[in-house]
């Protein structure tokens, strides 16, 4: 692999930028363009998408031709903290899913506890205690203090 590209990190960045530009360009194509004097909603986004694709090409080209100036340029997928990435994301998404039906208490507790699992130093006690602290804290600040219209227990758990 390294024979064809000297800096895989930049190659990946370039490709991702071009893909992002393509996504935005594709979405803008449905929008009215207008003319320069009276620009439609699609005018500026198309220009920007073009610019982004161009910048992506430059990054891609440098990735193919030039070696990395910082480290070996490899992305080291294996060393990514996949467990943390997954658990933290799941914790946040679960919070979003649970906040209405379950209420603030259970979804906050779940979010904190699951994200605590992301650490290699996780222990059951600290996880539970952190979850409880955050539930109490968010109740005091957001429901009592700020008057957020949220029940502690949602409709699924006998709340309102």
């Amino acid at each position: 692999m390294t024979r064809f590209m000297k800096n895989p990190r930049n190659v990946a960045t370039g490709l991702l930028l071009i893909a992002t530009a393509a996504l935005f360009a594709w979405q803008s194509l449905d929008l009215p363009m207008g003319q320069a004097i009276r620009m439609g909603p699609g005018y500026f986004p198309i220009i920007l998408a073009g610019l982004l694709a161009f910048l992506g090409l430059i990054v891609l080209a440098t990735g193919v031709a030039l070696p990395s100036e910082h480290g070996d340029g490899a992305i080291h997928f294996r060393q990514w903290p996949w467990r943390a990435l997954f658990l933290v994301t799941v914790a946040i998404v679960l919070f979003g899913v649970g906040i209405r039906p379950l209420g603030l208490g259970p979804s906050m507790g779940l979010a904190v506890f699951i994200s605590a699992l992301a650490s290699r130093k996780f222990s059951l006690v600290t996880g539970l205690v952190s979850a409880l602290i955050m539930v109490a804290f968010s109740w005091a600040v957001f429901i009592k203090g700020l008057g957020l219209p949220l029940p502690m227990l949602g409709p699924w758990l006998g709340g309102y």
Partner: peptide, 28 residues
């Protein structure tokens, strides 16, 4: 220690972003 701190930050971020518009889409 950080492993105690960061779940609290995650929790705070969740409720914080939700409370802006009371909308779960912001959390996602």
């Amino acid at each position: 220690p950080y492993h105690i701190l960061f779940p609290l930050i995650v929790g705070f971020c969740c409720i914080g972003v939700y409370s802006v518009n009371n909308n779960a889409i912001d959390v996602y």
